[in-house]
Amino acid sequence: MVELVRTEIDILSAVSKVGDPSAGAIDVFIGTTRNTHKGRGVELLEYESYESMALKVMEKIVDEARRTWNLKGVAVVHRLGKVRVGEASVVIAVSAMHRAEAFEGCRFLIDQLKKEVPIWKKEYFTDGHVEWSGSDVAIG
């Protein structure tokens, strides 16, 4: 299951979706919004996405993870829009027969998501600057 949502991510619901009688482990990664970036204070984050493509890329990396680690259930939920510091911006839950596959599959999914899925984060700094993460271009 892959989803892009504009309201608070329901973490327990994501976890409950991956439960499987053949699984001996569920691993969950929760990415949360941090109040600093390279030493500067951050007040708020805003995520945007090329949604039609993002969902396709998410499905593709989920398929790859399922095949590689024989995952039983996978849920990937990413938040869009404004997210306050401390809230979950992404939740990944996977189930597998054994914990090693669950850990590795989950790690692969978050690493690939960050590299491949067309989602961008705008950082609102406490000093009033607003910047796209990873760019040096100030826009406000």
Binding site: Y47, V90, I110, L113, K114, V117, P118, I119, W132, G134
Partner: peptide, 10 residues
Amino acid sequence: VALIPPTSGG
């Protein structure tokens, strides 16, 4: 066609 700058999800 989309021009995709470096992504920063997560």
